[in-house]
Amino acid sequence: MREATRCVLEANSFLKNSLKPVLYLIIAWLLGMSTYGQTGQGYIDYDKVVRTLPEYEAGQKKLELRSKILEDSIKPLIVHYFDSTQHEVERIVNIHRKMDSTEIALLNDDFRKIEKRIQNLQDYAQVELKRAREAIDARLKDIVSKKMEQFCIETGIVCLGEKEAVLYCSDCTDFTSDFIGFLER
């Protein structure tokens, strides 16, 4: 009985010692496989990522402020237009007379000039807001691009792009949450 116990203990010891390297190889292989899954290719949801950036919020506030300033510069002209129109109509009604064709033409011409100025200012405001939006978007794209490069280096990802740019990819992983976590560090 002692010999059987001793034989079982030796066999147990032998298995422990000889299986350790095999066990370590299996663990290393499993870790390598899980790491390999993350070093392939993937994508991020750019819009979702951008909305988490502090620069995005600052850019939105800047656009709102610029829009308000441009709107405020147009308002007096619109008020003037409506006041002028109302004043002329009241003047004509108060004197109970018809305007001759020259007066009508001059009045219409004045109103068209004011309308044209308002339209030009509105067009200018739209162009200015578009330029400001494009500048902010370019800055955000630059920030995300640089951070994506760092993220790929640190995580060993070979290829990472915007979700909208990926037409088809069978092995692609969505790294949006991981990337947002990286940005928040």
Rank of each mutant, 00 (worst) to 15 (best):
F151K: 00
Y46F: 14
E164K: 00
I118W: 07
M148P: 11
C169H: 04
L25F: 14
R117E: 03
R139W: 07
T85G: 15
Y81H: 05
I95F: 11
E10D: 14
Y124V: 05
A28G: 13
V127R: 04
C172Y: 01
F175L: 06
L107Y: 12
Y124S: 12
D178T: 08
L140C: 03
R97W: 04
A138C: 03
D137E: 01
T35P: 04
Y36G: 12
A4P: 02
V166A: 05
D47V: 00
I153V: 11
T176Q: 01
I27P: 06
T85S: 15
S13G: 07
L167E: 09
L129D: 03
Q119M: 08
A125Q: 02
Q41E: 14
K147T: 08
Q150C: 06
E103K: 13
Y168M: 08
D109A: 14
L140I: 01
R139D: 14
Y168N: 09
V127W: 05
N12V: 02
V89K: 12
S84L: 05
A11V: 02
N12D: 13
R131D: 15
L107M: 10
E162H: 08
L121D: 15
L70T: 02
L65R: 10
Y124F: 09
A165E: 01
K116P: 03
S170N: 12
A132K: 00
A135E: 03
E154T: 12
Q126R: 10
D123C: 06
I157H: 08
